[in-house]
Simulated scan of single mutants.
Amino acid sequence: MNGAAPAVRWRPLAALGAAVVLAHLALLRAVPPAPDGRAPPALRQFITRSIEIKPAAPAPAPPAAPPAARPAPRPPRSSVSDANTPQVQVQRSFSAIDSIASEVPPPAAEAVAAAPVPPAAPPVDAARTTAFSIPGSVRLGYSVNGESRKQSYNVRSELLWLQDGSSYDARLEVSAFLMGSRTQSSAGRITAEGLAPTRFGDKQRSEQAAHFERDKGKVVFSANTPDAPLLAGAQDRLSVFLQLGAMIAGDPARYPAGTALSMQTVGAREADVWLFTVEGEEPLSLPAGTMPALKLVRSPRREFDQKVELWLAPSLGYLPVRLKLTQSNGDFADQQLRSVEKP
């Protein structure tokens, strides 16, 4: 009896263990498989890994720039004449307007040295001249031919001269087809010393002017360049040609060949003393006809000065019938009389 008792006590424990095993098997069968065939999330193994942080790799060197392409060779210039290429003629005319009656400015970094050659004789001071003959009002037309930047051009200009015995107004206009015009003007009084300008203007796209403030003894420029002292007998770059003619017309015998004439000449930005030399009378063949004229020359005294050649016709009261301006770089404009009309 004592040997059978322990077996009876372990049966409930065995039955309980079997029930627990059966319950776990049922639970495992109830869990659905993962859609991708892998183990379900509850059964996946948690895996860790270490990440090694490496220093950033240096940026690759930029690729070498391709060699610059050589410019395409310029096509050969056409042999067609300018008469068939109006655009070229217009560009040349525009350069002409820009260069006529304008000095070529010297480089800013270089000083301009005066030429060492003095005049052969003391010049006649225009301020001391007392005999003048002022021409009557007139309109003069000119043909202008010249060269700018190695290109030839032909344009027209007109000088309108008006005076009433006490005041004057002069206007020189150079015009080019399709490119507009450039105008220089001079206005002032007629005095016992000839012309006394009060204002000089130079206009192309915009106007620059010089004002003669005689009561203050100075010339003021609208371009904000420094004022210049106003000397006796001063003229501007347009009136100077008319004043020379009036001086010589008043007493022609006083100005033989070789005579030097000096006068302060004012532009739109600065003033300088111009020295003219009388070279003598010579015949001229002009678009307006053949006539004798007295030639005067302003020779450059400094490296970048403009050369001025002026011809005055006695038959027209010593009005300018030809005016040739030559720049230091070789560009030139040659104005020759083609018509004389009433204003």
Rank of each mutant, 00 (worst) to 15 (best):
residue 20 V to C: 02
residue 18 A to N: 08
residue 326 T to A: 02
residue 238 L to N: 01
residue 5 A to S: 09
residue 252 P to E: 06
residue 65 A to R: 03
residue 339 S to D: 15
residue 172 L to T: 10
residue 152 S to I: 05
residue 245 G to Y: 10
residue 161 W to T: 11
residue 272 D to Q: 14
residue 305 D to E: 05
residue 157 S to G: 15
residue 41 P to T: 02
residue 303 E to P: 00
residue 208 Q to P: 03
residue 197 P to Y: 04
residue 267 G to D: 11
residue 260 A to N: 12
residue 340 V to K: 11
residue 20 V to Q: 00
residue 203 K to A: 14
residue 279 E to V: 13
residue 222 S to A: 08
residue 150 K to C: 00
residue 153 Y to A: 14
residue 220 V to T: 13
residue 186 S to Q: 10
residue 95 S to I: 03
residue 169 D to W: 07
residue 239 S to I: 06
residue 79 S to T: 15
residue 231 L to Y: 03
residue 109 A to I: 09
residue 125 D to C: 03
residue 119 P to D: 05
residue 210 A to K: 04
residue 172 L to F: 15
residue 100 I to C: 09
residue 184 Q to M: 13
residue 180 G to T: 13
residue 83 A to C: 09
residue 251 D to L: 06
residue 2 N to V: 11
residue 285 S to G: 12
residue 205 R to Q: 10
residue 218 K to R: 15
residue 271 A to K: 03
residue 294 L to S: 09
residue 39 A to K: 05
residue 184 Q to R: 10
residue 48 T to G: 05
residue 240 V to C: 07
residue 47 I to M: 02
residue 117 V to S: 05
residue 293 A to I: 04
residue 262 S to L: 12
residue 135 P to N: 07
residue 196 A to R: 14
residue 218 K to G: 01
residue 123 P to G: 09
residue 333 A to D: 12
residue 105 P to S: 04
residue 37 G to P: 02
residue 112 V to Q: 09
residue 164 D to N: 15
residue 266 V to R: 08
residue 52 E to P: 00
residue 140 L to D: 06
residue 69 A to G: 14
residue 45 Q to S: 08
residue 199 R to K: 13
residue 112 V to M: 01
residue 89 Q to C: 01
residue 77 R to D: 03
residue 199 R to H: 09
residue 43 L to M: 10
residue 159 L to S: 07
residue 298 R to E: 05
residue 62 P to W: 07
residue 91 Q to Y: 11
residue 193 E to H: 15
residue 17 G to S: 03
residue 84 N to M: 10
residue 61 A to P: 10
residue 299 S to D: 14
residue 173 E to G: 03
residue 87 Q to V: 10
residue 159 L to P: 01
residue 44 R to N: 06
residue 250 G to C: 07
residue 241 F to R: 04
residue 201 G to A: 14
residue 45 Q to T: 14
residue 146 G to N: 06
residue 74 R to P: 07
residue 74 R to V: 08
residue 184 Q to N: 12
residue 261 L to Y: 03
residue 67 P to Q: 03
residue 184 Q to F: 08
residue 13 L to I: 11
residue 49 R to K: 11
residue 197 P to Q: 09
residue 202 D to E: 03
residue 324 K to A: 05
residue 293 A to Y: 02
residue 52 E to F: 04
residue 339 S to G: 10
residue 77 R to E: 08
residue 105 P to W: 00
residue 201 G to W: 00
residue 152 S to E: 14
residue 343 P to C: 02
residue 178 L to M: 14
residue 139 R to K: 14
